Computed example of a mutant assay.
Amino acid sequence: MNSLLNKKVKFIDLGLKEYQQAWDYQVSLFDKTLAVKTENRNLPENQQKITDNYLLFCEHPHVFTLGKSGDESNLIISKEELHTVHATYHHINRGGDITYHGPGQIVGYPILDLENFFTDIHKYMRLLEESVIQTLKEYKIDAGRIAGLTGVWIDVENERKARKICALGVKTSRWVTMHGFAFNINPDLRYFAYIVPCGIQDKAVTSLEKELGRKVDVREVQKILKEKFREQFDFEWL
């Protein structure tokens, strides 16, 4: 086995964090990992350094983010009106279309060097989804996937009733990941009315609170989700 493989992940809870601040922090970790990989290219194996892995959790104040290939017309509210709903807007470099982040969501940003685990972006996306699916099972909620659509959905067998509870959008470079997922726990779902979520016009958005009919402790869900994430990716916490 390659002695440089690092199967350990550092968890960092950023708490409530402005989107730009969290993005800048992600970029700093992402760039640091890429720099190590670039340096390693020119070194003999016994001098190469391992790359670090991180899982960041946070909540954001109200914000809409549009992926690099997204359609800005999916932001229904005008940019001039954003201040009236106390929201900001960012056009960013992840995949996917438009989404909403806000208080009551678990936003997860894995900064992983997938060469420490496996080199398969499709598998990476499916394991992110599976971490959420297994978390929902702890609340007796049966969730799954819809062919051709990323994210985690409820009532996947019923096209008219299917609703999204977790959105995904990632960026990778040389197998290093950033951005990630947004898992709706107790968010204000009215904010999704200001966008066409993920560019999908005919599907609703839901939350754990809405499905259970009660508020849920975000910290409790975080604890379960962390463990499910660890199980899926098979690593140790630092």
Rank of each mutant, 00 (worst) to 15 (best):
M1D: 07
N2C: 10
S3G: 03
L5Y: 05
K7S: 02
K7C: 06
K8E: 12
V9N: 02
K10T: 13
F11C: 03
I12D: 04
I12H: 03
K17L: 10
Q20N: 13
V27K: 12
S28D: 07
F30V: 02
D31Y: 09
K32P: 00
T38Y: 11
N40L: 09
R41A: 07
R41D: 06
R41F: 12
L43P: 00
L43Q: 15
E45R: 14
E45V: 15
Q48H: 09
T51H: 05
Y54E: 00
F57N: 08
E59H: 08
E59W: 09
P61K: 08
P61V: 02
L66H: 06
S69I: 04
G70V: 07
E72G: 13
S73E: 07
N74H: 15
I76F: 05
I76H: 05
K79D: 04
L82R: 02
L82Y: 05
V85K: 15
H86M: 09
A87V: 13
A87Y: 09
H90K: 07
H90P: 03
H90M: 01
H91V: 15
H91M: 10
R94G: 02
G95L: 12
G95F: 14
D97T: 12
I98C: 07
T99L: 00
H101F: 06
G102W: 10
P103S: 09
G104P: 07
G104C: 04
G104A: 05
Y109E: 00
L112R: 03
D113C: 15
L114Y: 01
L114W: 01
N116L: 12
H122K: 13
H122L: 01
K123E: 04
K123R: 15
R126Y: 04
I133L: 06
I133G: 07
I133H: 00
Q134A: 01
T135C: 13
T135Y: 10
Y139C: 05
D142Y: 06
G144K: 02
I146T: 04
A147S: 14
A147R: 13
W153A: 02
D155S: 14
D155T: 03
V156N: 01
R163I: 02
K164Q: 02
G169Q: 03
V170I: 15
T172I: 14
S173Q: 14
V176N: 00
M178G: 05
F181Y: 13
F181D: 01
N184V: 06
P187M: 04
Y194Q: 11
I195N: 06
I195G: 05
V196Y: 03
V196C: 04
P197I: 12
G199H: 07
I200M: 11
I200P: 03
D202Y: 05
V205H: 00
T206R: 00
S207A: 06
S207C: 13
E209D: 12
K210W: 01
K210I: 00
G213E: 03
K215Q: 08
D217V: 09
V218S: 04
R219C: 14
E220S: 12
Q222K: 15
L225F: 13
K226Y: 11
E227S: 07
K228H: 11
Q232T: 02
F233R: 04
F233S: 01
D234Y: 05
F235Q: 00
E236Q: 13
E236Y: 08
L238C: 14
